[in-house]
């Protein structure tokens, strides 16, 4: 008798739990920096995200999930604590419903719901500056980033390419950068928003292209924000790149199919 083999598999629930764990240190650092108001933001975001998931689970007669937790954490970390809570609730509702749930839930869409909600915040309300970071926030992002990159939940290819292309754009334009703000926005934005398994490209070549697109767009959007690369630039870059990610994947697959067909054609001739 062979003993029963237990295979570990990434399920949406596992992914959500790991991402949540990776974000907790960042949340604590933001709490330390901005005070307990961040907990109110988090509470509202969690309630709004889970309520909509519950409604959709009810309509579709599917088991209730708690993927909204990661979305809520992203919002709580990135959104300024001074925002009125109803604005958080509206942004989370629109982000979760339009960015994720109408496509069928997490894993079925092509956007990170957190990115959609943050973009909505910035578009709708004047003067919203995301992720006011200090050194500790930047430092607290490191363990979670290392964890997600190590277990492969955040693909390393787009991460590396994006960092390189941001650096290239900044070098070409000859601007200095301030490390703390830039570090926190880049690290958190790239690992938790850009390298989200749902929002990014899936094919290997697609991931290289996607990373270059994210990095290039960040460099472009951050061109007029002075020395710091702001989180706003990162969010918009990720939003735009996520929209193009399925196209990149499609092109990569199409090129591969052509290449293999040509090779097979030559072999038959």
């Amino acid at each position: 008798m062979t003993p029963p083999l237990v295979h570990f598999r990434w399920t949406p629930a596992n992914v959500s739990v790991t991402q949540t764990a990776a974000m907790l240190p960042v949340l604590i650092a933001v709490w330390a920096a901005h005070g307990p108001a961040v907990l109110a933001t988090l509470g509202v975001a969690v309630v709004a995200a889970l309520a909509w998931e519950g409604v959709f689970a009810l309509i579709r007669q599917r088991p209730v999930t708690a993927h909204g937790l990661t979305t809520a954490l992203i919002i709580a970390i990135m959104a300024p604590v001074s925002l009125p809570l109803w604005q958080i609730a509206v942004a989370v509702s629109l982000g979760v419903v339009l960015g994720e749930l109408i496509f069928g839930g997490r894993g079925f869409g092509f956007l990170n719901a957190g990115v959609a909600a943050l973009a909505f915040l910035v578009f709708s309300f004047p003067g919203v500056a995301l992720l006011q970071a200090n050194f500790w926030v930047a430092a607290a992002t490191v363990p979670g980033a290392v964890l997600l990159l190590a277990v492969g939940l955040a693909p390393w290819r787009p991460f590396v390419v994006a960092i390189l292309s941001v650096a290239a754009v900044k070098l070409l334009s000859g601007e200095a950068i301030t490390l703390t703000d830039t570090g926190a926005a880049l690290l958190f934005g790239l690992v938790f928003l850009a390298c989200d398994p749902v929002g990014g490209a899936a094919t290997r070549a697609g991931q290289w292209l996607y990373g270059a697109l994210v990095g290039g767009l960040i460099g472009l959007f951050a061109a007029d924000t002075g020395p710091a690369i702001t989180a706003n630039a990162v969010v918009f870059a990720v939003l735009l790149a996520s929209i193009f990610a399925p196209l990149l994947d499609y092109l990569v697959v199409e090129v591969n199919v052509r290449r293999r067909r040509n090779r097979a054609g030559r072999a038959h001739v």
Binding site: Q87, F120, F123, F125, P126
Partner: peptide, 9 residues
């Protein structure tokens, strides 16, 4: 009343 800027886009 805080207008939603997104609605004008």
């Amino acid at each position: 009343f805080q207008p939603l800027g997104l609605m004008q886009l």
